[in-house]
Simulated assay, not measured.
Amino acid sequence: MIILPIANENIHLIPDTTNLDIIGNVEISYLDSTFRYAVNYFSNAQASSFPTSKPKSIFELNENRFGYVYLDDRNYVGHSIVENRFNNTLYIEDFAIHSDYRGKGYAHKLMDFIISNSKYNGISLEVQNTNVVAFLFYMKYGFCIGGFDTLFYENTVQKGDIAIYLYYSI
């Protein structure tokens, strides 16, 4: 297993879409200056997919927007696209692990790599309330809820979903 910077020789390995099962949704509340959440599980999972933030070419990456690809031999395991933000934090634009490798610790290893190679004070990201598996991974990893937006997906096919903003201090 190896994690490499995205480059011309490996950019083609990143898929255009990521598949996931929608197993429920996360309800967020804010009361007495505290965020709380509850997970509502569906009786049947719903297969879904979403486009990755795969760069169309290596030229879309630079010192402020870069990424990593996680490989097993020459097979794609996962990737992350990150962006340096003005407040000395790293924003995770895209973080995905191939379905064949999920639940085996690879997401944790990729996040460890991002953090250990970061020169920033923190990490932020947005996760959909219907992406329960990702949300629970981030919470278990140590991210905290910083806010949510009920209108973020209003003009998309995900209308009604909620954007949850998560933060991690380094």
Rank of each mutant, 00 (worst) to 15 (best):
N155V: 01
F42E: 12
F86S: 13
T17I: 03
Y106P: 00
Y76D: 03
N129S: 14
Y91A: 13
A7Y: 01
Y167G: 05
S118V: 01
I92Q: 02
Y41K: 13
V39G: 12
V132M: 03
A7C: 14
Y70V: 05
I145T: 07
M111P: 02
I115C: 06
Y30W: 05
N129A: 11
S169A: 13
T18I: 06
S124H: 05
Y165W: 11
A163R: 02
Y76P: 03
M1L: 10
D161G: 00
A47F: 10
K159N: 13
N121A: 07
A163L: 04
E63S: 11
S48I: 01
L20W: 14
F143Y: 13
L4C: 06
P55T: 09
Y167D: 12
I123R: 05
I3T: 10
E9C: 09
I14K: 05
N62L: 09
N62R: 04
H79G: 10
L4H: 09
T34Y: 02
E9N: 15
M111Y: 02
F148D: 09
A47Q: 14
Y138R: 04
F148T: 07
F113Y: 15
N62I: 06
L90T: 13
I123F: 03
G147D: 11
S49P: 00
S80Y: 02
K109H: 08
E63D: 10
A45W: 01
F143H: 06
L90H: 02
F50L: 15
K54N: 14
A47T: 10
Q46S: 01
P51L: 05
N84S: 11
Y120M: 06
F95H: 08
V157N: 11
L20C: 09
G67V: 04
S57Y: 09
S116K: 15
G122A: 10
A107F: 06
T89G: 02
N155M: 01
I58K: 11
M1R: 12
A163M: 04
S57D: 13
D73T: 09
V133I: 14
H98R: 02
N8L: 12
N84T: 09
D149L: 12
A38P: 01
G24P: 06
D161Q: 08
R85F: 01
S43H: 05
L125E: 04
F143E: 07
K140D: 15
S118Y: 02
T130R: 06
N87D: 15
K119H: 12
A107Y: 05
Q46T: 04
N10P: 08
H12K: 12
R65M: 07
G142D: 03
L125Q: 03
I115P: 06
I115T: 09
N75R: 07
E63A: 08
I162V: 15
H98V: 00
T89Q: 14
I114P: 01
M111N: 05
D73S: 13
